[in-house]
Design a protein around this nucleic acid. Structure first.
Lengths: 241, 241
DNA sequence: CGCGAAATTGACAAGGGTCAATACCGGTGG
DNA sequence: CCACCGGTATTGACCCTTGTCAATTTCGCG
């Protein structure tokens, strides 16, 4: 609301000028004029850790663009079993396109800054901007690849391999310096043991035991539950099955 | 090759006129002229059961449109473990868009008729046909939804629930009459026990035992390994967790 | 310092995997 | 038409990985 009045007479809205995701994610496909138009409907919200962005079976009213943080997507069964079906990081687009209601619960796994835009406004913009639609298609394809990779992990890997795979996934996503070939990585886990268990289809206890085993085998160091140091990512990768 | 000479002076190529998928799948987004243009590059192939359409890590040269049959998508680990990560039915589009090489193996689970089109030709058509890109986006979103549903099954459900879920999935996809609310269904399984096991993250033996249990509980009848009759889909659904 | 939540550890149980024997189906040839 | 054969599915006995339940430790925070 209050953010909006200062954006009119400028090529690129101020909000967007300082946005890290300006040239990444979907906004990279937009011209300044389109960005200005979009920004008229846009609203940046902060979600504290644990807050729900949208619930499973709930009507979708806005889409969002992640500016900071980690979002977890979960599905639940009536009896309380839960499965984490995806993690999203900046500058990912958040929200199931064209769906009346969400098939998943989206929850802030860390504090999250989200640039929200009403469903209709974005869909209108998509309709006459092929570049935007292309970017959304590419992200969807990437998410599908990731989901299928994870199906392999869920269906075939042992508990030890699952935990190693999870740590490797997080390390490469969170610690940018770690990307370049089998080097070291240090990071804070964005998920509790309970969330990790739900992600891997294991129990908290099994996750804990496997983490301990990796620590004893000197593959990882555990500083204080959340903070992990991996000396050599190749050794971790070797345990991913 | 030989099919092609008779398509020129006609609004809609003959091949397409008799194609069940003409108005479904991606072709529904095409004007007759575009369809004609596309059909110039198009080639219908039959794949016998078990034949590989494309291998994991293999360069993608063509996309395809399924006209008949069932395709299974699998990923493998070096040591031989395999996971089925998706099933496709007519009139699905087959092939990972924009990828240099396939991340999955696609294999004919039954005899399959596939309308193939070279990668470049389709991508060119996509570039100036927003309707086509939209359809592809919609299918990709649907596949993502399905993948996430299956992650729930793989990660959280018991063996009994997994097998029931699989049978329910196949019943609703193969037997069209069964779609309408908790009715009966009869169908041939398009997958061997080994494939079902790889789909569910179980062993052949466990799949077999759970099928037997469902038969003993009168939820299903097993005519001859492949042919299944479900008297009441609601009773099956009740076992899906 | 002390409390509550989260994580770890341990003892035990069970679901599903492994290995091996048997049964069944579909096709081929006598 | 029937007998045989190979591949596929079922069944059974046993065992291992992971889940369950409970006790203990550690962390974060007032």
């Amino acid at each position: 609301m209050s953010d909006r009045k200062d954006i009119h007479n400028s090529d690129v809205p101020v909000l967007c000028r300082s946005c890290e995701a300006r040239h990444k994610g979907i906004c990279g496909a937009l011209e300044p004029t389109e960005l200005t138009e979009l920004a008229r409907h846009t609203h940046v919200s902060r979600f504290e850790t644990g807050r729900e962005l949208i619930g499973e079976g709930t009507p979708v009213e806005t889409y969002g663009n992640m500016m900071r943080g980690v979002v977890k997507l979960t599905k639940g069964l009536e009896d309380g079993r839960r499965q984490v079906v995806g993690l999203q990081f900046a500058p990912d687009f958040v929200g199931r396109l064209f769906a009346e209601e969400s098939q998943v619960t989206a929850e802030a796994a860390s504090d999250v800054d989200l640039c929200r835009v009403p469903k209709a406004a974005l869909e209108k913009l998509i309709a006459d901007n092929p570049g935007l639609e292309r970017r959304l298609l590419l992200q969807t394809l990437r998410e599908l690849d990731e989901a299928r990779d994870w199906m392999m992990t869920l269906g075939q890997k042992t508990a030890a391999e699952k935990v190693a795979s999870f740590l490797h996934l997080i390390a490469t996503h969170i610690d940018p310096s770690a990307r370049g070939e089998g080097r070291a990585a240090a990071f804070d886990l964005p998920l509790s043991r309970a969330d990790i268990a739900d992600f891997l289809g294991l129990t908290i206890e099994t996750v804990s035991r496997q983490m301990t085993q990796l620590r004893k085998d000197r593959v990882i160091e555990i500083q204080n539950y959340r903070h992990i140091v991996v000396a050599d990512l190749r050794r971790l990768l070797a345990r991913c099955g």
